[in-house]
Computed example of a mutant assay.
Amino acid sequence: MKPTLVAGATHRFTYRVPENKTVPDLFPEAHDFQIMPHVFATGYMVGLMEWACMDLIRPHLEDGEGTLGTLIDVNHTAATPPGLTINVDVECLEVKGKWSRFKVKAHDGIDVIGEGFHERYAVMWDKFKARVSEKAVKAGVAA
């Protein structure tokens, strides 16, 4: 990772919640999810927070590099129906080499729906994919 990512960097990510990002869509094979209300799922909120952090980091990556989420510590405090727009505000709190930590906060225009912390680690995709392939072969699930 380039040394240009520094603590204090901020970014806002905006996303309109579609009909297919509700709790029943998260795991269609899970009956308990199917009987829940059609509101923005916590799992999708976590992904949205990661996406916002990736957007902030992207200009600071070397060619062939990407980041992996390594920690998520957030709450989800308000339901959001499809059609509302969520703003995710992220702030880089700390950078140590390839590791970075962020404060994340999501708001749907009416309520703060979630906030907390997220950490990411930069990797070279080719090396990462090779390690995953080796693991799959070792487990006997490689094609």
Rank of each mutant, 00 (worst) to 15 (best):
L71C: 14
T22N: 07
E91C: 12
V17S: 01
R101C: 11
I113A: 04
H11G: 00
M45Q: 12
F40V: 09
H38M: 08
G43H: 07
I110W: 00
V74M: 05
E62S: 08
I35Y: 04
G83M: 02
F13S: 07
G66E: 13
A130S: 12
H60T: 10
F33R: 05
T14C: 03
P82S: 06
V46D: 11
Y121C: 13
H107L: 01
P59H: 07
V95L: 06
E19Y: 04
V88G: 10
T80M: 00
E65F: 08
D108R: 00
H107V: 02
F13V: 01
M54K: 10
T80H: 02
H11A: 08
K98G: 01
N20E: 07
P81W: 06
V132Q: 15
H76G: 04
G47H: 02
K98H: 13
V132G: 01
I110G: 05
V104W: 05
P82V: 01
V132M: 14
V39C: 04
V88T: 07
T22Q: 06
A122H: 03
P81T: 11
V23E: 07
V46L: 09
I35N: 07
K96P: 03
V90S: 09
F40K: 11
V104F: 11
N20P: 00
I86P: 00
F13R: 01
H11T: 00
A78I: 08
E119L: 02
I35R: 13
H11V: 02
R16K: 12
T42I: 09
A130G: 06
D111V: 00
E62R: 14
M54C: 13
N75A: 12
H118E: 10
T42Q: 02
V39G: 07
W99T: 14
T85V: 03
D63V: 08
E50P: 05
A78V: 08
T67Q: 03
K105W: 04
N75G: 14
H11I: 10
I113D: 04
A79S: 15
E119R: 06
H38S: 15
H76S: 09
G69L: 03
D55V: 03
E19T: 07
R12P: 00
M36A: 15
P24E: 07
P59N: 10
T22A: 06
F13W: 12
V132K: 13
W51H: 15
T14M: 02
S133P: 05
Q34C: 04
Y44W: 15
D55Q: 14
K21H: 14
F27D: 10
D111A: 14
K98D: 11
G43W: 02
I86Y: 08
D63F: 03
T85W: 04
D63R: 11
G43D: 11
T70F: 13
F128M: 15
D55Y: 05
D32C: 09
E115M: 10
H60P: 04
T67Y: 09
I72F: 15
Y121V: 15
T70K: 10
R16H: 09
T70P: 13
S133H: 13
L71S: 15
E91Y: 12
A41K: 09
I86S: 02
G47D: 09
K21G: 01
G43E: 11
H76W: 14
G97L: 04
T67E: 07
P24I: 11
D111G: 03
L68Q: 06
F117D: 00
T10H: 05
A30I: 14
K105P: 05
A122R: 06
I57C: 09
L48C: 03
D89G: 13
R101I: 04
D108I: 03
D89A: 13
